[in-house]
């Protein structure tokens, strides 16, 4: 027998995780991970803390997350019907979509002209920020803890005082001819 979906919180969490994982995909956290599709190696937005960021009221999105999840699952049901996809009631409808279909649906929702575009773009923006800037954590702490996004991007570690300094920063030599109409102060004429 198919296990029923547990409770509303779990539906919400799994749905939002699946959305964030569509924006920056990652590897499954366990073999039975359903929300994270496993479409890319290494941690993605979910491992980077997308849910922690979205749940923080500073983003302005936290109070709307129930509604986001409900709407997204509604869109997923319509989409699944359109594409005659087999249903799987053990997980929320968006989570039930295979990764390429999650991607196609997110593309549809974020395309100019979609009436809800603004909301889905906001959700995408913060999902991405969890990965590329860890906006829910102090950056130096996130790097020290091996944050999957910052590490994947190759962001350098700061000095011990938490500040970045790059003493070597320049090739240090002329690398192009100057424009002939440059003023003595260095502006275009």
């Amino acid at each position: 027998m198919t296990p029923r979906i547990r409770d509303e919180d779990q539906v919400r969490t799994m749905t939002l995780e699946a959305f964030a994982d569509t924006i920056v995909p990652g590897e499954k956290r366990s073999p039975d991970d359903r929300a994270v599709a496993g479409a890319a190696p290494g941690g993605g937005a979910v491992a980077a803390g997308a849910l922690e960021l979205l749940e923080w009221d500073a983003t302005g999105l936290s109070s709307g997350l129930d509604e986001f999840a409900r709407l997204l699952n509604g869109h997923a049901q319509v989409y699944a019907t359109e594409h005659e996809l087999a249903s799987d009631e053990s997980v929320p409808p968006f989570v039930a979509l295979p990764f390429e279909h999650r991607t196609a649906l997110v593309q549809r929702l974020t395309t100019p002209g979609h009436p809800e575009k603004e909301f889905w773009v906001s959700l995408a923006l913060f999902s991405n920020m969890a990965f590329d800037s860890a906006a829910h954590l102090h950056t130096a702490d996130a790097l020290a803890a091996g944050h999957p996004g910052l590490i994947a991007m190759g962001i350098e570690l700061p000095d011990p005082d938490g500040l970045w300094r790059f003493p070597a920063y320049s090739y240090g030599r002329p690398l192009a001819r100057l424009h002939p109409d440059t003023t003595p102060s260095g502006s275009p004429a």
Partner: peptide, 16 residues
């Protein structure tokens, strides 16, 4: 998709 997804993640990994 050009601004999110699998290929975008690969692009981010070349951020340096």
């Amino acid at each position: 998709p050009s601004w999110f997804g699998v290929d975008k993640k690969e692009l981010l990994k070349r951020w340096r």
